[in-house]
Design a binder for these strands. Structure first.
Length: 604
RNA sequence: GGAGCCGUAGUUCAGUUGGUUAGAACGCCAGCCUGUCACGUUGGAGGUCGCGGGUUCGAGCCCCGUCGGCUCCGCCA
């Protein structure tokens, strides 16, 4: 028997055809003298019917089949009666009247039911991860994995069309202590030495520019030995690209072009040909986030000016230390209960906020006392100040104002997260919308409070902005001016869609003197720099073109295309939150002989 | 490294204030059934209440520890 059709393609126009279908038994409905089987393959489901009267042998075999048996059937496509059509199935206008049935393979009873109504009834995720091959048979995951394949294809199409060359870089390379923790691989030939898996092909892609390829791209697997999150796995895939002789705008155009092509061809999603631009500073000020979700408003408002003369010690203290007091306004939520505001307070505390203050502006009714604003700050600030804060916040009748005071970083982190959390709880996010943004002018350095050191915000090869170059030089050459490093902006940028950082990149440093300056700023002596990046510093000596690029997260892009918030939904074989593979039970131990050969000893 | 939620039949869940024999639905097994598509119907099997300890006359329920899953903070140049 040779398959003639898939289980998703037969239609009314095929009535009368003799067909052969092969697939898995999704469902069996036994009526004694005849049996319905829903046959499933990757393309869909087709109902086939086996009758004792017309196909005695096939009917006898059908008696013994169960869910997930693999079968082949031969039969005629027949039209269903008007009232027997199934509008839920693409193939619901027809069914196949079976003449022959072959059991290609039986199947053990699955450890969980694949066919359940509603995702909330799915088996627990650890069970599904252990039997990933069964979970992957579910139409939802089949769809997601195919969407991912389409996205990768669209990316290749785009860059190929734009004249980029796909270049593979090694998976076994050298550990550099910067950034994320490396996965390391012991070398047998060089006992006691180790390769590292790439966190990203950063340096190598820059070297392709030095090597003159001009436009490089790669679908690159990356590895980072860090803790996981709903959108982070220890190994993941990036679109990595780099181009020579370009400025930032030219890179932005490629980011826009690539995302627009992928979103359109894979998801039929239209994004603007030129994306909005916003500086990092503005994003942090207005949204408390460097990856703001623009599908809803609720921007942060600054109340610091109204409170600059306050006696209330916590606020006065905050402002005295250079902190700020900001708020968001939640529309129509003046009826937040004590329990709800307590929950939100617990929420912001995770981000280091010491408290969440609130003002509720009730809807005006007949009596004045019912209409007066209430606030957790009423006693300490008084009616007049509260009134001023309401005015500044822009709150109107019926609204709630949620206020956080503290260090700028804490206020941004907590209110930024609160804004997202409230939007989620109050259903303010339009799931049909796609809001994209390019965030520009990221800071060059981040200040480490504990060590008082400055570390690269992006990576140590990122170019400072021309406007800030003098400040950069001053800060590096005068230890007393070191704090200026915190103000230097970089030619670094992110692409943000619906609050997800989908891509990030920068224009790189191509002059060796500025690169040296940057290592100095990062507290890396010339000797240390040479030890770690010597080959790269050498390469910079031999005519490096100005260049820049970006890397895009394939998984995050696919999460948006698939409408899921979980990275495991767009990976065929993901790991758990504790970085294990429950199907193959990795990581695992290795033989003592293997370790011996590698010169590796496990210490208890 | 830290925090929160969850863990009861193969699966999803219920299980009152600590009280006798731990339930339901789906799935599974055996029958019946001529139009189902969440088929219907009759009967049946199926439990280390994650694991270990404690409190108690008595623990699925309370306490301590531990393991696993998910989520978050730290971390992720």
């Amino acid at each position: 028997m040779e398959r003639t059709h898939t289980c998703g393609e037969l239609r009314g126009s095929d009535v009368g055809e003799q067909v052969v279908l092969m697939g898995w038994v999704a469902k069996k409905r036994d009526f004694g003298v005849f049996t319905f089987i829903d046959l499933r393959d990757r393309e869909g489901v087709t109902q086939v019917v086996v009758s004792e009267e017309t196909a005695e042998q096939a009917h006898a075999k059908a008696k013994n089949i169960r869910g997930e048996f693999v079968i082949a059937i031969k039969g005629n496509v027949v039209a269903r009666d008007e009232n027997a059509r199934n509008t839920k199935l693409a193939t619901g206008d027809i069914e196949v009247k079976v003449s022959e049935l072959l059991v290609l393979n039986d199947a053990a009873v699955p450890p969980f039911q694949l066919e359940v109504a509603g995702s909330e009834n799915l088996a627990a995720e650890d069970t599904r991860l252990k039997y990933r091959y069964l979970d992957l048979r579910r139409p939802q995951l089949q769809h997601n994995i195919r969407t991912r394949a389409k996205a990768v294809k669209a990316i290749r199409e785009y860059f190929d069309t734009q004249g980029f060359i796909e270049i593979e870089t090694p998976i076994l390379l050298k550990s550099t202590p910067e950034g994320a923790r490396d996965f390391i691989v012991p070398s047998r030939i060089h006992t006691g030495k180790f390769f590292a898996l790439p966190q990203s092909p950063q340096i190598l892609k820059q070297i392709t520019m030095i090597a003159g390829f001009d436009k490089y791209y790669q679908i690159a697997r990356c590895f980072r030995d860090e803790d996981l999150r709903a959108d982070r796995q220890p190994e993941f895939t990036q679109l990595d690209m780099e181009m020579s002789f370009v400025n930032r705008e030219q890179v932005y155009r490629e980011m826009e072009g690539m995302f627009n092509h992928v979103m359109k061809t894979v998801g039929n999603i239209d994004l603007p040909s030129e994306w909005p631009r916003m500086t990092y500073a503005e994003a942090m000020r207005r949204f408390g986030s460097d990856k703001p979700d623009l599908r809803f408003g609720m921007e942060l408002q600054d109340l610091s000016e109204d409170l600059k003369d306050t006696d209330f010690a916590p606020f006065a203290d905050t402002l005295g230390k250079g902190g700020e007091i900001k708020c968001i306004v939640v529309k129509g939520k003046a009826d937040y209960s004590r329990k709800q505001t307590d929950e939100l307070q617990e929420f912001v505390k995770r981000y280091g906020a010491s408290a969440l203050a609130w003002i509720k502006v009730p809807v005006r009714t007949g009596s004045d006392s019912d209409s007066a604003p209430t606030s957790s700050l009423m006693k300490v600030l008084g009616e007049e100040t509260i009134g001023r804060l309401i005015k500044t916040s822009g709150a109107v009748e019926g609204d709630a104002v949620l206020i956080v005071a503290g260090r700028k970083s804490v206020v941004a982190a907590s209110l930024g997260a609160l804004r997202q959390e409230v939007a989620r709880r109050e259903n303010l996010i339009d799931r049909t919308k796609y809001e994209c943004l390019i965030v520009t002018e990221f800071p060059m350095f981040e200040h480490d409070e504990e060590t008082d050191e400055y570390v690269a915000a992006h990576h140590p090869f990122t170019s400072p902005m021309d406007e800030d170059l003098e400040m950069f030089k001053t800060a590096v050459n005068n230890p007393s001016q070191k704090h200026l490093l915190g103000k230097v902006r970089a030619k670094a940028y992110d692409a943000v869609i619906n609050g997800y950082e989908c891509a990030g990149g920068s224009i790189r440093i191509h002059q060796k003197d500025i690169q040296a300056l940057n290592f100095q700023a990062l507290g890396l002596s010339p000797e240390k720099a040479r030890e770690r990046f010597g080959f790269f510093l050498d390469a910079l000596e031999y005519g490096t073109p100005p260049h820049g690029g970006f890397a895009a997260g394939i998984e995050r892009t696919c999460m948006i295309l698939c409408g899921t918030e979980n990275i495991r939904d767009v990976m065929a074989f993901p790991k758990t939150a504790s970085a294990q593979d429950l199907m193959m039970d990795s990581p695992g131990e290795v033989d003592a002989a293997q370790l011996d050969e590698l010169g590796v000893k496990v210490v208890e």
